[in-house]
Design a protein around this nucleic acid. Structure first.
Lengths: 193, 193
DNA sequence: CCAAGAATTTGATATTTATCAAATGGCTGT
DNA sequence: ACAGCCATTTGATAAATATCAAATTCTTGG
């Protein structure tokens, strides 16, 4: 048996077109990991050493706010990247955590190897730039999508684009992501109010 | 008289350390622009062709929501970068606008020149990656700062870190940025409620 | 399959924030 | 300096959402 890199290669090819030797170098540093439901891809207080590409499954990012309350800040769906962005890039342990909501299969590369690739070739440097840019745009959209919107509108927008997450994530995580209470989310869903 | 590149060079040196010829190449593509209060650095419906580095003054980013209501999505302070991120990188005209809140002096480089620099040298490619990353982290923080926070808390956090903006931006822009009404912002400031 | 715990729903009520209306204050161009 | 136009404040009220409490449903380990 051999590892299937198709999905990862497709994702990367969206940004850059590496040469064959570059691909070989890159893929030799990639490993596949599996996480059971409830396991952590990244744990609070530890340095996040890997950048993950989610092949299959769902995960959520969470952190503690000032009052020690856990808030969900992001969801990962298949085909997306997962890392503790601030921690990964700065290299410090962060108050962040990434948890598998379902069994998750992910490919990953270590921060160490990624830095080596960045140094080796402009292709990877460019990939890094474009992926950062890609996420920047996503985040700007999420950001702007929270503005000028009521709880109901945020809920409706979320439901229409992330229907599948209702099957995998408990309401409390979605409620936290939308900045509303569990009860309100339950009522919005039931269309009371 | 000659242009003073000190602030820009300091900013860039935070990310990369270009060689002298690289600096010369870069700076030869940079121009200084001045905008009067109320002028647009980027106009709605036009492609944003420049990346700006704000030397002096304040600006705001805004866009129209689905109902045609203008919302403020970001503020620029001296020493920060300004561009219509999505529009600049994708190259399409966007429903975005950047307005000078005060007279603004900015250095800028065209998208065209920036792409040339990216192609020419890994230094600039890396600068692009790191700047994107820098903004990504900022945005993640803003994002998370909106979660699990009441209007009052968002206001208090904003006031404590952006006091100077109250001098330059009308309340309506700040209210929009914080996703509260002008009246509520006025009351929070007066400490009614 | 059952029991225990967790997740979700529902109800009653309180709090926060928005909305509408009007008064006051500040700024700008002539 | 003045008129006219915004910006800001203040008040009264309504609407949205949170909070607290309890009932119900779902899930999971044994």
């Amino acid at each position: 048996m051999h590892t299937n890199y198709t999905a990862l290669k497709t994702f990367i090819s969206f940004f850059v077109t590496p040469t064959e030797p570059e691909w070989d170098d890159f893929l030799s540093r990639v490993q596949t990991k599996r996480f059971e439901k409830g396991e952590n891809l990244v744990s609070r207080g530890k340095t996040c050493d890997y950048l993950y590409f989610i092949l299959d499954g769902f995960a959520r990012h969470c952190m503690l706010d000032e009052d020690g309350v856990e808030i969900t800040t992001w969801f990962n769906t298949p085909g997306s990247l997962a890392t503790d962005y601030a921690g990964f890039t700065i290299g410090d342990p962060q108050p962040f955590e990434i948890q598998a909501l379902t069994p998750v299969t992910a490919m990953c590369i270590s921060n160490h190897d990624l830095q080596i690739l960045y140094d080796k070739s402009k292709t990877w440097e460019r990939m890094g730039r474009l992926i950062n840019q890609f996420y920047l745009i996503q985040l700007i959209k999420r950001n702007n999508g929270m503005l000028n919107k009521s709880a109901r509108e945020r809920f409706e927008e979320f439901s229409s684009t992330n229907q599948e997450l209702f099957r995998f994530a408990p309401l409390k995580y979605i409620a936290s992501y939308l900045n509303i209470t569990i009860e309100t989310l339950s009522r919005l869903r039931a269309n009371t109010y």
